[in-house]
Write a protein that binds this DNA or RNA. Structure first.
Length: 444
DNA sequence: GATGGCCTAATTAGGACTTCCGGTGT
DNA sequence: CACACCGGAAGTCCTAATTAGGCCAT
């Protein structure tokens, strides 16, 4: 169970000696995995340091004495929230961060990172790139050769980190916040707010998923891309381009069903184990339009905060909590049973936050939870870690304001809410980070 | 004045879609 | 008839790499 003081995040950076992290196997489960978002990839830096803090507070937010140490720590602060909000379609992007709190964020992202997954079992692994396993033997289409021009040869721009393509570690080091569609879909599939409501696995073993509510998914995608006119037709075109690139396959004979050719090893699988009824395009077919409205009303899109809010205030018609988060029923190579870990990123605080009211969606409850360690963060000396210090101050202020606002509204503080959230998370989510084994039967 | 280093803005190339379209199948 | 699906073509947006030009110190 997560305790306030136990908050940890994933930490990863090239300068992390992962062997030093092996002893933290008892840390609570904050599974940070397959962070497709470039920022998130870049930001993987906070958590292990906070994990270190569990044993040695004095090392909290230790900043490596490298050239960009300050900025790196800055990144980690943002990463904390980002990583914990990656299940929220509305917070998949860090645009908010870069545009509001961290206008210069893009300028300071310059650190190659290594991804580390932390679970109840400790550091699962440190990888220099997402660990994908191919779901079948089909190789992606050859990358298009860039046309040679008279100009001096130059480095090619990094392409989408497709599952079978090596991710260049510093490809997003200039602040890009691109979240590719396939990444977005994977995020949705790991988000209990939308999975299985709008999108669900039909065969997680083979990476097959279905767009239960294609229009809703398309609108979420459009919202993310700031394309209010996005529809399934358009999104589908983008999906079809993925056929050529070997990222997706179409499942023959099944509508709205696609297949990832590769999946990250640490994919979180949310399945609809007890027959929870999906929307099946209710909003469109029935005209009910409950899930995602046609008028692009964001309030109806199941952003995590709002969705949980709804659930807490008045039970939703389709209760998400009835679905479980689990690994696919596949044979595991791991001999010892994994302890049940929580994906604490799924649940959301219950009440509308002050920050939300102020249209500052950048500070999630999880980040606020992070800031429960704020005294430690604030212990940083401004001189040494100016950007971190300022960020901590800012976020701390927001945290206090939010807590105060919630207390004033319903006498329920943020921390209490967050604690409840942890409890809820333990009850509601049963998560394992599946270590998918390569499919012996790769032929579909 | 010449040279070199640094910085910055502009330019360019290319990836990832997005939009539109005509068509087929269910 | 509606919808899913397909793929070509052209366009947009964004980002990274490159280039050019200005400034300054030597």
């Amino acid at each position: 169970m997560l305790q306030q003081s136990e908050l940890i995040f994933d930490f990863a950076s090239d300068h992390v000696n992962t062997s030093q992290l092996g002893g933290y196997s008892d840390y609570p489960a904050v599974i940070v995995e397959q962070v497709p978002h470039p920022h998130l990839l870049s930001y993987a830096g906070l958590t292990c340091e906070q994990a270190n803090a569990e044993e040695d507070h004095q090392q909290l937010l230790k900043v490596e004495p490298c050239e960009s140490g300050e900025e790196e720590t800055m990144e980690t602060l943002v990463a904390a929230d980002s990583l914990l909000n990656m299940d929220c379609p509305d917070t998949l992007s860090l645009e908010h961060y870069s545009q509001t709190f961290l206008p210069s964020l893009g300028d300071v992202i310059n650190t190659p990172v290594t991804q580390v997954t932390v679970s109840a079992e400790g550091i699962v692994g440190a990888v220099d790139q997402p660990q994908w396993h191919s779901l079948h033997t089909k190789k992606p289409a050859a990358q298009l050769q860039s046309k040679k021009r008279g100009r001096k040869p130059r480095h090619r721009r990094a392409e989408s980190p497709t599952p079978n393509i090596t991710v260049k570690k510093d490809k997003y080091n200039k602040g890009g916040n691109t979240l590719y569609l396939w990444q977005f879909l994977m995020e949705l599939l790991q988000d209990r707010q939308v999975c299985p409501r709008y999108i669900k696995w039909t065969n997680p073993n083979e990476g097959i998923f279905k767009l239960v509510n294609s229009k809703a998914v398309a609108r979420l995608w459009g919202k993310h891309k700031n394309k209010p006119d996005m529809n399934y037709e358009t999104m589908g075109r983008a999906l079809r381009y993925y056929y050529q690139r070997g990222i997706l396959n179409k499942v023959e004979g099944q509508r709205l069903v696609y297949q990832f050719t590769s999946l990250p090893k640490d994919m979180i699988y949310i399945t609809d184990c007890d027959g929870t009824k999906e929307e099946e395009d209710y909003d469109d077919n029935s005209g009910n339009d409950e899930g995602v409205s046609d008028d692009s009303d964001d309030s109806t899109i199941p952003s995590s905060d709002q969705s949980v809010d709804e659930e807490d205030s008045h039970p939703p018609q389709k209760k998400m909590s009835s679905s479980s988060v689990r690994a696919p029923a596949i044979q595991r190579t791991r001999p010892a049973p994994r302890p049940t870990v929580q994906r604490d990123t799924v649940l959301r605080p219950t009440s509308t936050s002050l920050i939300q009211e102020q249209h500052l969606p950048i500070v999630s409850a999880e980040m606020l939870r992070t800031l429960q360690n704020l005294p430690k963060v604030q212990s940083l000396q401004p001189a040494g870690h100016a950007s971190v210090f300022k960020t901590a101050q800012l976020l701390g202020s927001l945290c206090e304001r939010q807590a105060a606002a919630e207390v004033s509204v319903d006498g329920k503080g943020v921390r209490e809410t967050l604690n409840e959230k942890s409890h809820h998370g333990q009850k509601a989510s049963h998560v394992e980070a599946p270590q998918l084994v390569p499919l012996t039967n790769s032929d579909h």
